[in-house]
């Protein structure tokens, strides 16, 4: 179950290379359901790690523990050198450095697109509004929706909203981006535009952990693919090996169902 060698193209910068280190993470929901059963995962700087698996396998729960949206009862998680404990200051420090993109976009409907981007950098990082605005417009241009800056999220299509959500996460200049099934709530014809943005981020060696069912995306950019089932990490492999010759029987069954 040890991770096979990654083909991470990231520039190495010494000791800070380990971005996420999760060891033996166990989680029980209050109703007693054992959601995570001793999950291990390491993510290096610049890696794109894709997590796949059947629904209910704990993929989303697992990445939501990385920024403390879910708590866990056993094991340890270290994000960018900061250990995740119950200390609220540590949690806030980690959340500032970890961006998250949700399945349901979760844009703030009462704010314009531009204000969605600017809110957190101004409030949390205490940066001057004018400077943040400029950066936000640059990000919106980059994801291709600068002309919608003054609209409200409800006036945009699903694909546009998800691109705004990615830009919003980027505006905090995070060191890691988590994607929780970013294309699952989209109409099929809008999946492409969101994946294209994610591809461009991967090309810039932004560290990403992506929960998705998009096989093509995983093949194209993943440094490693992780398969989860019943709350366990079943296999970690490079995409070529994972999709053509997985080592685990469970992975084979999963691939038979989705390919």
């Amino acid at each position: 179950m040890s991770p096979t060698s990654s083909r991470s193209p990231a520039p190495t910068t010494g000791s800070g290379d380990l971005m996420i280190e999760a060891r033996g993470v166990e989680k029980w929901y209050p109703n007693g359901f054992h959601a995570l059963r001793g999950c291990d995962l390491t993510v290096q700087r610049g890696e794109v790690v894709v997590i796949m698996g059947p629904s209910g396998s704990g993929k989303s729960t697992f990445i939501r523990t990385f920024n403390a949206l879910e708590d866990f009862q056993k094991g340890s998680i270290t994000v960018d050198g900061i250990a995740l404990t119950n200390d609220l200051r540590q949690i806030d420090a980690i959340r500032r450095e970890v961006g998250m993109v949700f399945q349901q976009f979760n844009l703030f409907p009462h704010l314009t697109v531009l204000d969605n981007l600017c809110l957190a950098p101004v409030l949390v990082r205490k940066r001057p509004k004018a400077e943040v605005k400029e950066q936000a417009m640059a990000l919106l241009r980059r994801v291709g929706i600068a002309e919608q800056a003054s609209k409200f999220p409800g006036q945009l299509s699903g694909g546009q909203q998800q691109r705004v959500a990615i830009a919003r996460a980027l505006c905090m200049e995070p060191r890691i981006l988590l994607f929780d099934e970013p294309t699952s709530a989209l109409d099929p014809e809008m999946v492409r535009e969101v994946l294209d943005v994610m591809l461009s981020l991967a090309a810039e060696h932004i560290t990403m952990v992506v929960v998705t069912h998009e096989v093509k995306f995983a093949r194209q950019v993943a440094s490693r693919v992780v398969l989860m089932a019943e709350g366990e990490v079943v296999e970690v492999a490079d995409p070529e090996t994972f999709f053509t010759n997985p080592s685990q029987e469970r992975s084979r069954r999963f691939l038979d169902q989705i390919l």
């Binding site: 920024n67 949206l69 806030d92 959340r95 500032r96 970890v98 961006g99 998250m100 949700f102 349901q104 979760n106 844009l107 703030f108 409907p109 009462h110 809110l119 957190a120 409030l123 949390v124 990082r125 919003r168 996460a169 905090m172």
Partner: peptide, 26 residues
């Protein structure tokens, strides 16, 4: 929706900040 608070928190906002600028206005 619950996701509003989660989105605000995931951007690093404190609980009071998230309530004041995201949850309460809605």
């Amino acid at each position: 929706p619950r996701g509003q608070l989660e989105a605000a928190r995931s951007l690093g906002m404190s609980l009071p900040q998230a309530f004041a600028s995201v949850v309460l206005p809605q």
